[in-house]
């Protein structure tokens, strides 16, 4: 019945197959203790950072709304999650979903007034709000204040991180390749024209913001349950900036780019863990270099599925090829 769009289903199946193989390999490396515990933790952090980068990309890259407070939403998800698992013995999945829902709800609350602002003003407002969230948490005695929340059960493992990451990637890929996502792209490209084509720009900005915040909340829950203790210091402005670097480095508006950005930044951080000052210098140099030679980021607006040999696998069937371009999913 859906002959024309069937290639999308085939693509999804191929990607899912690839994910299963990749998971098997990673799980093998973990179970076989090939990876040291330091690198095992870093594999988890890469997954969490991919969720953070791709969800921030939905807001910044696809919808064009410059948000600088992503770590704040992560903190909300982390704290809601740890309170639920540690104090109320809730199942992990409930804690993750509740953390995501709380962050998404806060995203809506914050988004409605702030998304009227544009460009630099929005960046400053979200930066401030991210810090406010952190400072509020710091002053809640119930969650340990500045000293942090202790006694968190170690619930996060490779399977959780991997499959939540896969869900996040599919969610955002499918969203941007459908009408609601196209509405977001239209807002990024030209807000007045988007509105004139019937797009309720406020609604879709808030929607993108809420989805982004929701996934940041879920990532926060995964992050918190990697450790015995979390503290507000993990969710500073510098953390938000870190996620922004991943998005900018990979390409604003490319999921492939966000994955690559999360990889590069996490590896750099891990490799340079003993020299934190050095790390910042390398970041700065890498960004300057990128802005000069590839301001659109490593991938620009491109996805791996429409590059080189992958186009043959993921592209449209011959009969449906669009003339004049390279635009597929």
């Amino acid at each position: 019945m859906f002959k024309g769009m069937k290639y999308l289903r085939k693509n999804d199946a191929i990607m899912l197959g690839f994910a299963i193989v990749l998971f098997a390999v990673l799980q093998g490396l973990v179970t076989g203790r090939v990876l040291s515990s330091f690198w095992q933790l870093n594999v988890l952090i890469i997954g969490i950072n991919i969720i953070m980068a791709v969800s921030l990309n939905l807001i910044n890259g696809y919808t064009g709304q410059f948000s600088l407070g992503h770590a704040g939403f992560m903190a909300v998800g982390a704290y809601v999650g740890v309170v639920l698992t540690t104090n109320f013995h809730a199942p992990f999945v409930v804690a993750l979903l509740a953390g995501g829902a709380a962050a998404a709800f806060l995203g809506v609350l914050i988004g409605i007034p702030t998304l009227r602002l544009s460009g630099d003003y929005l960046a400053i407002a979200t930066l401030g709000l991210g810090e406010i969230i952190r400072i509020v948490i710091m002053n809640i005695e119930y969650v340990g204040g500045a000293a942090g929340f202790k006694g968190i059960p170690h619930l996060t493992n490779l399977a959780w991180v991997f499959w939540v990451t896969v869900i996040a990637l599919f969610f955002i890929k499918n969203f941007v390749n459908a009408q609601p996502g196209r509405a977001c792209l239209a807002i990024r490209e030209n807000e007045i024209a988007a509105e004139s084509m019937g797009v309720n720009t406020t609604k879709y900005k808030v929607m993108a913001f809420a989805i982004g915040a929701g996934f940041a909340g879920i990532a926060g829950g995964l992050f918190a349950h990697c450790f015995y203790l979390i503290s507000p210091a993990s969710f500073t402005f510098m953390a938000s900036f870190n996620y922004l670097i991943m998005v900018v480095m990979g390409g604003m508006g490319s999921i492939t780019g966000s994955i690559a950005g999360a990889f590069v930044v996490t590896f750099l951080s891990a490799a340079l863990a003993s020299w934190p000052e050095f790390r910042m210098i390398i970041y700065a140099l890498a960004l300057i270099f990128l802005m000069f030679y590839r301001p659109q980021g490593l991938f620009g607006y491109m996805e791996i599925t429409n590059m080189g040999p992958f186009r043959k696998i993921f592209g449209r069937p011959q009969a449906q090829k669009l003339k004049g371009g390279k635009a597929d999913e």
Binding site: R182, A183, L185, A186, A193, S196
Partner: peptide
């Protein structure tokens, strides 16, 4: 005021 970084087809689809 086109959606200039999007394809011609997507420009129409959005509407």
């Amino acid at each position: 005021r086109l959606f200039s970084e999007l394809t011609v087809l997507d420009n129409v689809k959005i509407a």
